[in-house]
Design a protein around this nucleic acid. Structure first.
Length: 393
RNA sequence: GCGGGUGUAGCUUAGUCCGGUUCAAAGCGCCUUCCUGUCACGAAGGAGAACGCCAGUUCAAAUCUGGUCACCCGCG
């Protein structure tokens, strides 16, 4: 059985819409933000924290879980939901992106896909990742062992994990890639998309999947980088395939050298070409303003490490803007992080205490900030949903 | 009082024996910026020291000599 997506309301002022996704592990109200649980954990939090904050879904990672502890182990332990004790919607990223950004065994310092512009990269290191038609050969960032991931194996891994939302295995491109390279990556992504669909169908038909895994959806991914022509083509081709939803992938955001306007342009170009009755997921985004902008353009789903990573790096995302809580000025500040926030961190602790925890490198500081940031994101998206409900956005 | 040791950035120290473009360096701390499909304890920049003080030897001293002050350890 396939995942169901129902649109409950469409805004009169924009492309924004409210919807509900129904899976074997419960419902998910859209627009929604998935906290990222790369290694089957939202870093510093427990699954019940996530539930308490109110999130209905999270996003885990095929690449990481495949390497450690391995999908076989997780399957044996009853699937990802049981393994990490999260009863909610679990999406798994296909690993395509990570194979390129991590599997190259280089430079963990950069947060993005290898690009030509990074001067410190050893010569030829990009070559550690070998893209072939059957898939990608790469080295594990954990132990350097040789690994392979392709469309079929990625789907197989994700099915073994028991994901509710499965992403097709794609080949992302770097923002610095030229037209030809971007086009090649996109076309391969398209060919792989067909194979992902076929593999998924085969697995479902074989009924090797447990019943609980059946109400899930496979999402195709649109590539095309910064080139409008390619994006348009990708949206048309992927959009016509029999996917349950669509991921818009690639390289967005300022840190990719792409302006926000670029992202908006791509969204406004791409989304109208996708079937309106299916959900759209903007991969790896974003900042608060990005969420609002993208929802207006018709995006239903997001995932991003931003709130959780920022929290670990001492930054609280608040109604007053970003606050680097480890700064000495907060050392004797009796106020809560965000006076307007009702989260347990803000209700129970002062900035001074949080500042101290970070300076003392006590991990509870990361936990309290992560809790707050996610709470803040949840409120933010709920708020947007309310606005859509009232036709105010 | 005698003998020995130590004194280099806010802190902990490297360099001193074999004086001179590895001599003013590192880690931590501090300040600033950053983090958007990977990194929990992360990245990039920056400020900060007339090398205890005084004198001497020398073309040249953190580096050698003498004195002086402070602290530490022994013995009285």
């Amino acid at each position: 059985m396939k995942m169901k997506f129902e649109i409950l309301k469409k805004s009169k002022r924009s492309e924004a819409r409210l919807g509900v996704i129904k899976t074997a592990h419960g419902v998910l109200h859209t627009p929604a933000f998935f906290p990222v649980a790369t290694k089957a954990v939202v870093k510093t939090l427990t699954s019940s924290d996530i539930k308490k904050i109110g999130f209905e879904g999270i996003l885990a990672n095929t690449y990481h879980l495949h390497l450690q502890p391995g999908e076989k182990t997780i399957k044996k332990m009853g699937g990802l939901h049981k393994f990490m004790n999260f009863q909610g919607v679990i999406a798994t990223d296909s690993g395509g992106f990570q194979v390129f950004s991590l599997g190259a065994g280089i430079d963990h310092k950069t947060s993005k896909i290898p690009t030509k512009s990074e001067p410190n990269r050893p010569q030829g290191s990009v070559g550690l990742v070998k893209v072939a038609e059957d898939g990608v050969y790469f080295k594990s960032h954990l132990d350097g062992s040789k690994q392979f991931l392709g469309p079929e194996s990625s789907i197989k891994v994700q099915q073994d994990l028991g994901a509710d939302i499965v992403f097709a295995f794609d080949q992302p491109s770097s923002p610095l890639d030229n037209f030809t390279k971007t086009q090649e990556a996109m076309e391969r992504t398209h060919r792989w998309a067909t194979r992902c669909l076929a593999e998924n169908e085969k697995l479902v038909k074989n009924q090797k999947l447990k019943i609980q895994n059946c109400e899930q959806g496979l999402f195709g991914i649109i590539q095309g980088g910064k080139y409008k022509k390619l994006r348009e083509k990708s949206a048309k081709i992927i959009g016509q395939m029999d996917f349950e939803g669509f991921g818009i992938g690639g390289s967005f955001g300022s840190s990719y050298g792409d302006s926000k306007k670029n992202m908006l342009d791509v969204l406004n170009l791409t989304i109208p070409l996708l079937p309106s009755e299916k959900p759209r997921h903007l991969l790896g985004i974003g900042h608060l303003e990005d969420l609002e902008m993208a929802i207006k353009s018709g995006v239903d789903l997001f995932d991003c490490v931003y709130p959780t990573r920022m929290a670990r790096h001492n930054v609280a995302i608040t109604s007053l803007g970003n606050l680097d809580i480890a700064k000495t000025v907060f050392g004797q500040d009796k106020k809560p992080l965000d006076p307007k926030c009702q989260c347990p961190t803000c209700k129970n602790y002062t900035r001074a205490y949080l500042c101290h925890l970070f300076k003392a490198q006590e991990t509870t500081g990361s936990r309290l900030l992560t809790y707050h940031n996610l709470w803040f994101f949840k409120q933010f998206v709920d708020n947007i949903r309310q606005k859509v409900e009232n036709n105010k956005l």
